[in-house]
Design a protein around this nucleic acid. Structure first.
Lengths: 218, 218
DNA sequence: CTGTTTCGGTACTATGGGGTACCTTATGAA
DNA sequence: TTCATAAGGTACCCCATAGTACCGAAACAG
């Protein structure tokens, strides 16, 4: 029986995301895997269900990814790449530009990190952490570190331009991040809190910006 | 063959912890379960291994907890009870006492939340969150909420005594917590970072205290 | 049109483990 | 001492599912 391929229907990323650049079959499998893994978690997700939803045979799935873990790893790597440093720090011409850059960074970071799909990836990596620490490493190296460097770069430029007080830029970045997120992420991961909407995110980012600037006057 | 029961050897909690008050058999099973679950995660942990380590038959295990999930739930509930509000806020007679109370709270919170055993419980609850959101709920209701109330109470008393500026105490607490933790917990859960030692914890708590007080001058 | 090669689908194997039936042993009553 | 009852241990059932072998079909070359 001929099979009509269903168009993928993931929340279309704002801009071409790494997942869009993959070969069609690979992409179909990853998209199906996201759905199944988000619903069931890693252990309860079956490769058969992923293959079925992707309208692909298990054979093809294994030809493409080699193992169940291979799917997870590809997914996490893609997702980490997806959260690449949300914006290169703009030229910082005055104190307001610094605040704007920090707020924009905060909005981008919060938007990414509270996205249900990204949260699911974190959840999966955390669940597998005892058996497979490499997944966390991938999120760290490809996700957190570049992001953090971008933030630190904003702070550094702000300091160089004399719009924010001295101090280790890394520490400033950490403070900003803490003020931004609080314990939100943990409780999102636990499924206790609801993700913030765009207005909440903006408020949080502005508040964290004000606070960190107030903490480090010139 | 007669079996000699081995004395349990969990890191003896500073003070009688809820787990110490349980009937011996129940406790032995829970202690064994902690070990197995920390090493393997929920899905890979087998009830047989838990029973064996507890020197108990599967039959007894099931008589006691009914199901594998029952063990996890009991464990998470116990752990949440364990992290009960680390200290009742002392009388706050001067600004220094407020700072001390906040720092003490911070040290206690960080010590608890970076403890490998507690982290394992969070990890398990997060892993099961898609299938079983109730576990997160337990951590929230029995762990976070009482803790957060204690923190807010410290802030409130500090405000009442005029040693810290006005503002929603909840928001102040959230700021303090964010400054305290940053994204530490997520990366501990992912197995990427190492838990901070006592000195790190003290430094963090003092820094968060200074920062939050600086943010809200009288 | 026929041979060959590559790809895909299905049906299978092997394994691990949750939960329980059933038998054995201890306990206590008469 | 014997019988009744409760507790415990072992062995088993059964299911889910990761990964693969094998076969059939399509595509392409000659």
């Amino acid at each position: 029986m001929p099979v009509t391929r269903k168009k993928s229907r993931l929340p279309a990323a704002k801009h071409p995301s790494p997942i869009d650049l993959l070969p069609a079959r690979r992409r179909a499998i990853l998209i199906a895997a996201v759905g199944v893994l988000m619903e069931k978690g890693y252990a309860r997700a079956s490769t058969l269900e992923i293959a079925t939803r992707a309208r692909v045979s298990k054979r093809e799935l294994y030809a493409e990814f080699g193992s169940k873990r291979g799917i997870l790893e590809a997914l996490i790597a893609t997702s980490a790449a997806d959260m690449q440093a949300p914006l290169a720090p703009a030229e910082i011409g005055d104190r307001h530009a610094l605040a704007a850059a920090l707020t924009a960074y905060g909005v981008a970071a919060l938007t990414t990190l509270t996205n249900p799909y990204v949260l699911a990836m974190y959840r999966l990596a955390i669940a597998e952490a005892p058996a497979d620490p490499e997944l966390g490493e991938i999120l760290d190296v490809k996700g957190r570190q570049p992001n953090r460097r971008a933030l630190v770069e904003i702070v550094r430029r702000g300091q160089a331009a004399g719009f924010v007080g001295a101090g280790e830029p890394e520490r400033l970045g950490q403070e900003f991040f803490g003020l931004l997120m609080g314990d939100l992420m943990v409780w999102l991961l636990l499924g206790v809190s609801e993700p913030p909407n765009a207005a909440d995110i903006k408020t949080r980012a502005e508040h964290a910006t004000q606070a960190v600037l107030a903490l480090h006057p010139i």
